[in-house]
Design a protein around this nucleic acid. Sequence first.
DNA 1: CAAAAAAATGCCATATAATGCACTTTACGG
DNA 2: CCGTAAAGTGCATTATATGGCATTTTTTTG
Lengths: 72, 72
Amino acid sequence: MHFTEIIKQIKERRQVLQVTQETLAELSGVGLRTLKKFESGKGNPTLQTLQKVADVLGLEISLKVKNITPDS
Amino acid sequence: MHFTEIIKQIKERRQVLQVTQETLAELSGVGLRTLKKFESGKGNPTLQTLQKVADVLGLEISLKVKNITPDS
DNA sequence: CAAAAAAATGCCATATAATGCACTTTACGG
DNA sequence: CCGTAAAGTGCATTATATGGCATTTTTTTG
C-alpha cells in the first residue's frame, strides 16, 4: 500500500465515520494542524502519529509480505 | 499491529532474508543510524522511512479495519 | 578462547515533523 | 445567493527524526 493510498484510506474512513478533522484531532491527541497537513497529502507523519489516528478510526497498521507473482 | 510488533516484524524479516543492517540501509537508502535506532526499539520512524525499509524487505504497509468482535 | 562481523550507543549537526494561531478557500444546507 | 461549518494554507516555534562517525557491546565463527 502506497503512501497516498494510506492517506486516502484514513481520510475516507474518517468521513465514513462522520468525524471532522477537529474531532479526530481531539480524540487521537494529534494536533489539528498535523492532521490537516497529513490528510491534504503534505507531510510525512511519524509512525506514532499515524497509529494514534488509525487507532481512533478503528484501523490497524500491518505489514504483509508482498506477493511477487500474484498471477503465476 | 502494535509499534513493537512492527519493529519486530521488520527485524525478523531482515534476518530471514539474511541481510545485515548495513546492507539494508544501503539498499533502502535509509541511514544506518536511523535503521539501528529503529530496530533497537528507540525511535519513531516517519512513514517514508518505514516504507523504504519495508519495500526492500518485500513487505507492504497496509491498514485494515479492526474487528471489534472477532469471536462474536 | 580469540578474531571478526554485526549490532547498539553516544555525540552532534541538520532537516523536518508536530503544533498553535490566524486567515483563506471550499463545501453544504437553507 | 448567504451563512456556517469544515477543510486547507502560511508563518513561526519547538520537538524530534535523520544520519555520519567513532566507540562499545554482543554475536557469531573458527
